[in-house]
Amino acid sequence: MKDAKILLIEGRHTEVPSFAPDLQKKGFEVVIVQSGGEAAKRLDKIAPHLAVVNAASLRSSGVRICQSLNERDAKLPIILIVANGAEVDKDAADAVLSLPFTAQKLVNRIKPLLPSDGKNVIHVGPIRLDVEHRRVKCLSKSSKLTPRLIKLLRILLDHHGEVVERESLFKRVWDTNYTGDTRTLDVHISWLRRAIEIDPNNPRFLKTIRGVGYRLDV
């Protein structure tokens, strides 16, 4: 995405490198704030396309900052940078990087998370499906999807709040009139839950309607 704006939350500890110069050299517009509180207050005004939380420079885990940003904008992609050896929940952000690493590695993580320049991005509630990059983001989770999972999710998004019958889903996703064995659909639903649910065993969004089909509640 051209002219992407990045919110960089970064402290002043000199032993931790600043990533601002490298990101600016790569053509990104970088807005630097020095605390999570400042980031939360200015989030609406800055309107970034992505946030980078350099927790190593803030001497914190960065998890609360990520949570605060997610509460204010569930669609905002977040990359969390932590110190070498730091233990952090991988679901705290869309990507977690441990120092040391190159600036190019950071850029490589940023690009797939940026909004597409095209129109192949679907937003419904907290779910953001980027068809072009085959990636879905829901709350703090970001996952790569197979083409078939994208097709399945698009149907459910188009009919969110409605019960979609198993046979109908199977016919549309697999392009077949045979519905004698739809167990493969159950497997794909399970994979989709892993991609969008914080707890796939207790789904908040993708519900099973026993004996009928599935409903996406967003």
Rank of each mutant, 00 (worst) to 15 (best):
K25E: 15
L185R: 01
T146S: 09
A103C: 11
Q104V: 01
D130P: 04
D217V: 13
D175C: 14
H13N: 14
H133G: 06
D44S: 12
G180C: 09
R183T: 13
E15R: 03
P100E: 01
T146Q: 08
D89I: 04
Q67F: 10
D3F: 10
N70V: 07
I6M: 02
N202Q: 08
G37V: 07
N201I: 02
D181V: 14
I198C: 07
D186K: 08
P77V: 00
G118F: 08
F28A: 04
D117R: 08
L157E: 03
V88D: 09
A55C: 07
L216H: 04
R183W: 09
T14W: 08
S98E: 09
L169W: 06
L7H: 03
I209Q: 15
T208G: 07
E167I: 05
D44H: 14
V53N: 03
G118E: 14
T14R: 14
P48I: 03
A47H: 08
R59P: 15
N108P: 06
E71N: 15
L156G: 03
G11R: 01
I79Y: 00
I32M: 15
K41L: 08
L106S: 04
R215T: 06
P17C: 10
V121R: 01
V173I: 14
A56F: 07
D89M: 03
F101L: 11
H188F: 11
R194G: 10
V107I: 11
D181Q: 14
S68I: 12
A51V: 01
L149C: 04
P200W: 02
A51D: 01
G11L: 03
V52P: 00
R166M: 15
D199C: 08
D44P: 05
V121E: 12
P126H: 05
T179S: 10
G27A: 00
L106H: 00
K171H: 14
V131L: 11
L206T: 02
I78E: 00
S35I: 08
N202L: 09
K171T: 13
F170T: 00
T179C: 06
D175A: 14
L216W: 06
D3N: 15
L43H: 07
H13T: 15
L185N: 08
R64Q: 13
R72M: 01
A20P: 04
G161K: 07
L113R: 06
L139M: 05
L114Y: 01
L145Y: 06
L169A: 05
V53G: 00
A40L: 05
Q67D: 13
E162L: 12
L58P: 02
P147H: 05
F19Y: 05
Q34W: 09
S60P: 10
G211H: 12
G125I: 04
D73E: 14
P100L: 13
L152K: 02
A195K: 00
H133R: 12
E38Q: 14
S116H: 12
V163Q: 11
T179K: 07
D22V: 08
A83W: 04
I209A: 09
L113Y: 02
A93C: 08
E15M: 12
S35T: 10
P17R: 01
G85W: 15
I198S: 09
L139G: 03
H49K: 15
K105E: 06
L43C: 02
G11H: 09
I78Q: 04
G213I: 00
W191A: 05
N54I: 11
A51P: 02
S68M: 15
E197R: 04
K75E: 10
H123R: 11
K5A: 06
K75M: 10
V212H: 13
E38V: 13
I110V: 13
